[in-house]
Design a protein around this nucleic acid. Structure first.
Lengths: 342, 342
DNA sequence: GTGAAAGCGCTAACAA
DNA sequence: TTGTTAGCGCTTTCAC
């Protein structure tokens, strides 16, 4: 592997001139430039990035912490992030953390080790918690599942509003008993979506019923299990809202196994709009999120932080969209209820 | 940010002693060691990995090139790779290439730029093609979709055997006209699975029919479109084998839309066994692949290459498994055929 | 416009 | 066992 000295020798110039030719060609005579470029070619020279980065104290690496990559939603986020990083000349250091804080801390620490310039965290956990005083916080942005009142810039969705919109959609279809399968315990996503659900129920003058809310963890299996519980109720819900599409698809399986039809016997709604949602039978009514944009925005904001550009906004909220498909339908109210009109 | 010199000063030793204490503590007096560790603590010292790597000419980074991360199968592969890399003290530099060769080359070149120690390529394309003489080939392994007669170590599946097994399964159920929706054009996966399909058909004494084979690209949409073509045939197949689960799920949607039932009217089979496959209606008969193991093995082999360990094998073939579920069923042969016996 | 030289933070001979 | 010293390959003043 040839180095800059070798090139300088071949071109009959100093190493400084080679460096300049490569970085700011306009500061070098065309004649010299040509000689240097020829020497670069001849030597098959590739700058040693290790040395460049070491010297210039900038790595071009961004750490991205993802709870699990084996989830279509996060995969799309990462895809968007990769795209944006690529375009801006940065690289992505991926860590599938499985939500393990030790791992998240370890990878985030790569910034301290000068191995990365910044961190994107897709989970509501601050990997720098306690490890530093507020002053010299490394560049980090928190996207998707964001820390409430955290100290980092965030990119999020208005999960309360989205869950409320979906619940209102179900209410507008005549549903009065609406079940909710929640996401992972402790997740702000779970809490916000529950809040939106409750707001809609209350504002419609309906009663909240604890039996209609059960825990999950966003997975297929959790949806399957949760639906099982719901259907076993004496007074089972006529609609089921799952806090993720994966859970909705799991629930769909269970509902069918119990011999019920969607949406005739029970309406079903998800959250995320993963590609598979449109291919279910029936297609899933859901909340569409701009997954790729989470990644893009996160990278943009992080780079702005790193390069100390004037950041446009510390907290970005991306838009969602209610996407009605075949899994939700109007029902005849089982009893007359004058408080309801649509 | 404090450096090694600062620590040395605090501990009243030389920088060499600090370095030794951190790297091989046994070569330092316990007394000195304690003083150094105290100084490290006091200074909040973190070794500058940039400098360490620069000096020791080893980055600890592995580039992983994935065609698309938004595919459950690859997501699982990456998850396994990450796990293994993590355990071995390496980091993963992720590149979602979308199959763009320029990008693949660019990222693979990070090895030349001393930014990564090796490359994992999950597609049948040699990013170092033409860029180097066979002698000083950088460490690289090729997994999942492997280059035929390539010069790199590989981890693959016997796709011919797997597709053959699935086709034989369908034949054993009494199917004589079996459609095939192929994967991406030009992919060895596509070619091998086609070969396995053809072998099974021929060995069963059935006729190959071009009309029963159509192109796809592993995506949901391609399965949907492909099934449309198959069902439009005058003499439509009684079974449909898709070269990926995603295509099978797309096909399933189309089949239902055409008013047909799976498996009563048409049997359907996929390939990969993505989590969703078990949650379809009906659950999908498919070929299970040890996705995570592809990633693990690839990392293991790559590290062996990098560290010049005696590599156990250059070409590893991982096992597949035929996983019958509800989407395939026996049919009564539409006509008597003495050549068939099961 | 170009070159000489210092030095980024660390490791690894070699000396003591 | 510990310290001294010479770089790793590059960028960047500062002279010329």
């Amino acid at each position: 592997m040839s180095n800059i000295r070798e090139v300088a020798r071949l071109a009959g110039v100093s190493v400084a001139t080679v460096s300049r030719t490569l970085k700011s060609p306009e500061r070098v005579l065309p004649d010299t430039r040509d000689r240097v470029m020829a020497a670069v070619e001849q030597a098959g020279y590739r700058p040693n990035l290790m040395a460049v980065q070491f010297r210039s104290r900038r790595t071009g690496n961004l750490v991205i912490l993802v709870p699990t990559i084996a989830n279509t939603f996060f995969a799309r986020v990462i895809s968007g992030a990769q795209q944006a990083a690529q375009a801006a000349g940065y690289r992505l250091l991926l860590c599938d953390t499985q939500g393990r804080e030790a791992l998240e801390r370890q990878f985030a620490d790569l910034v301290y080790a000068h191995q990365a310039d910044g961190v994107i965290q897709l989970r509501a956990f601050d990997p720098f918690e306690g490890s530093t005083s507020g002053q010299d916080l490394p560049p980090i942005v928190n996207a998707c599942e964001v820390i409430q009142q955290g100290r980092h810039p965030t990119i999020s969705l208005d999960n309360v509003a989205a869950a409320k919109a979906m619940t209102e959609h179900l209410i507008a279809l005549g549903h009065r008993r609406i079940g909710l399968i929640k996401g992972s315990k402790g997740s702000p996503l779970t809490r916000d979506r529950l809040a939106g659900y409750e707001q809609a129920i209350r504002q419609a003058g309906l009663a909240l019923d604890d039996a209609l809310v059960c825990h999950g963890d966003f997975s297929l299996a959790a949806g399957y299990a949760g639906a099982g519980k719901m259907l076993a109720l004496d007074d089972r819900p006529s609609a089921l809202f799952c806090e993720s599409d994966e859970m909705a698809i799991g629930a769909l399986k269970r509902i069918k196994e119990e011999g019920l039809r969607v949406p005739e016997d029970i309406s079903l709604a998800g959250f995320d709009d993963i590609p598979m949602a449109a291919y279910c039978d029936p297609p899933l009514t859901t909340i569409s999120q701009p997954a790729e944009m989470f990644g893009e925005k996160a990278v943009e904001m992080l780079i702005a932080l790193i390069e100390k550009q004037p950041s446009p906004a510390r907290h970005v909220v991306l838009p969602f969209q209610l996407t009605p498909r075949g899994s939700t339908a109007r029902i005849e109210p089982p009893y007359s209820d004058s408080s309801f009109n649509d």
